[in-house]
């Protein structure tokens, strides 16, 4: 799976980060990316409203009975450090190695949009509790659960990088476009490991 693009969308649906990783792939204009970000923001909201009632109820019951392992659809399995061990020994900022995290985690985005597939591409979306959205576009059409897990792991790692190299940078103004050299660099390394 090759990652073509990564986007970060802020709480109000504004595009704050966009980066293409494949020079060969077709590119959107920056205006088109802005529209994509706004559209995704809207689609996530609508998707959560049209989620079938039965699903909503079962999800709620799952939460109420509070099974430790959670519903299969709610827990994202951890996908081990990707790529060679030499690369994973790299500097993880304020996180201790060998990886940013090493446990499965709960995906509480139970009703919203998680991924979109076309014949050419897949789009994955990871939403944080604060309303940030991390989006990855890959060059494969896939619907298998493994690929979705890998993408969610990747995007949570991107979130970890965001926490270190964007949030801890005094020259970054919250909600504004991200222009942080170190974030670019580390994100590039992360994607290159795939």
């Amino acid at each position: 799976m090759a990652i073509q693009t990564i986007l970060v969308i802020n709480r109000s649906g504004g595009l704050v980060y966009q980066r293409d990783f494949l020079p060969s792939a077709a590119k959107l204009t920056s205006n088109e990316y802005l529209i994509l970000a706004g559209t995704l923001q809207g689609v996530v909201a609508i998707a959560s409203q049209i989620a079938p009632k039965s699903l909503q109820i079962s999800a709620k019951q799952g939460a109420k009975t509070g099974s430790e392992l959670g519903d299969a659809t709610q827990t994202v399995p951890y996908v081990g450090s990707l790529g060679s061990s030499a690369a994973s020994a790299a500097d993880l900022g304020s996180f201790l190695g060998p990886d940013f995290f090493n446990e499965s985690f709960t995906s509480w985005n139970t009703k919203g949009l998680k991924h979109v597939t076309t014949d050419q591409n897949s789009l994955f979306l990871y939403q944080t509790l604060t309303g940030l959205k991390f989006v990855a576009v890959s060059t494969q059409n896939t619907t298998n659960a493994m690929a979705v897990s890998i993408a969610e792991n990747l995007l949570r790692k991107a979130y970890c990088l965001y926490a270190d190299y964007v949030m801890k940078n005094p020259f970054y103004e919250p909600e504004m476009p991200i222009r942080c050299e170190l974030f670019d660099k580390k994100l590039g390394e992360l994607v290159a490991q795939l």
Binding site: G93, N169, F171, F183
Partner: peptide
């Protein structure tokens, strides 16, 4: 070689 306190700060014209 890798200053600890400023490791998260992308270089700018201000030297933290």
């Amino acid at each position: 070689n890798s200053p600890l306190l400023t490791r998260f700060i992308s270089s700018t014209n201000v030297q933290c």
